[in-house]
Design a protein around this nucleic acid. Structure first.
Lengths: 243, 243
DNA sequence: TTGCGTGATTTGTCTGACAAAGGTAGGCTC
DNA sequence: GAGCCTACCTTTGTCAGACAAATCACGCAA
């Protein structure tokens, strides 16, 4: 349960809208009425509405009211599913892991830059092949500073576990990630790992994750089979009301 | 200038943070102090801070204060650059257009579903090849309902213009878009249009744009040369504070 | 029918206050 | 002296009430 009351109200309204209890395009009750119904003050309700508006659930117009917007249903939203496990589960398949291996090494130049490390700083690397309903669909490689997590801690995590869950358990939750998307064809090594032919299309997601203080925590390279996944992103429009 | 005072305050603070006037990790003045400094009430300031928090510019902690977060600088953020023109310009190149053509047709099934139209509803189609510094980099195809815009209006727009700008000029600004990303290889027709070899890697962006009322306005298919572009997305972390 | 004015409705902003949680400094115990 | 605990202060979260501004609906007149 969220710490802030306004978050709970926000989630409650978001659920109602998503579930269709408040129909798309329908007008919500006025703020005073809705505040009484939800048992909170109008200020708290407005915090929640502000958040919903920011995420595109509702539009608010002075003099007119607050209206729910039509919201497209998304299967694999990059915003919602942060890890590979989430993405697979969101597609209705059972996630699994294969060929898991952890090791330590000196950081390469690219890794040093991405993670903000000193030269020759030690890093720990986790390489896995993720499966959906038993079929290999993603090859992933996670790199973390040895200062962030020890080899033992990384090796000790659940085989199907999420690195994010481990980091959060250590009090270093991931607050934000920046992912770069590019297409590529499978080379021979990747084809063997994923058990597909050479030349099959992949989406390469290179992601740097940052902690709540803004420090880089994790560098991930994920190679997704294009035919197995579909990525969607919600983009905010150029309407001048926004920044 | 935005209609709502809280939006202006939001933008003002976002600018300060982005420009480094408020350093990453630095603590902002307390709400009462900041409200006086900005000349607004604390309620309005809190609306602005709520928005900034939602976008990851700041974190707020009761008892501790509001802190600016480190925000990575992005070259081609799918969130920031909505149209192809923006994306090309953000890469430091000069956008241009080639092989522009408009026509009208009956909507296909996929187009009907995406745009929420009745069977055999007429649509207008704009096909263009976009260039960066004279080199063809994107093949695009925009489909709109004939009710939204007439063939003449579409043909009359500036050759390098943005469909978004036209829609906004007609009082139908695009508030949100949902893009699906998938990789593909160029077929023969696309290779000729983009003047590349068959088999070169493309990123296919299929996007549906919605108006402020949530109604679908525009269906776009964009085929980007992979080697010419790089797409980044900021993802919100799995920190438990979110939905 | 069309246009205009007027009033009701609704969100936006302001003011003031108290509660809750984090941070800090001081004192106490061992 | 080191560590722990407590009281206090700061800061955000929530509440209450009021007025301003914008939109919408209705009635009326041309």
């Amino acid at each position: 349960m969220s710490k802030r009351l306004s978050f709970r109200i926000r989630d409650e309204l978001a659920t109602r809208i998503a579930a269709g209890s408040i129909a798309p395009g329908a007008k919500l009750p006025s703020e005073p009425v809705l505040a009484i119904e939800l048992g909170v003050s109008r200020a708290t309700l407005r915090e929640a509405l502000r958040s919903l508006e920011e995420d595109g659930f509702v539009t608010r117009t002075r003099g007119s009211g607050t209206h729910a917007t039509y919201r497209p249903r998304l299967r694999n939203n990059l915003d919602m599913n942060f890890g590979v496990t989430d993405a697979i589960a969101a597609s209705g398949m059972t996630p699994g892991t294969r060929d898991s291996a952890v090791r330590s090494a000196a950081a390469t130049t690219a890794e040093r830059e991405a993670l903000g490390l000193a030269q020759d700083a030690p890093v720990v690397i986790l390489e896995r092949v993720r499966t959906a309903d038993g079929r290999a669909v993603v090859s992933s490689r996670d790199v973390l500073s040895a200062d962030t997590i020890s080899l033992g801690e990384l090796a000790g995590m659940s085989i199907d576990g999420s690195v994010y869950a481990v980091l959060e358990g250590m009090g270093r939750p991931v607050a934000r990630g920046v992912v770069t998307i590019s297409p590529m064809k499978t080379d021979r090594a990747m084809a063997r790992r994923l058990d597909v032919k050479v030349g099959v299309l992949l989406l390469h997601l290179r992601q740097v994750d940052y902690g709540s203080d803004g420090a880089p925590l994790l560098l991930s390279d994920e190679f997704h089979l294009a035919e197995a996944f579909e990525f969607t992103v919600v983009r905010r429009g150029p309407g001048k009301e926004r920044t």
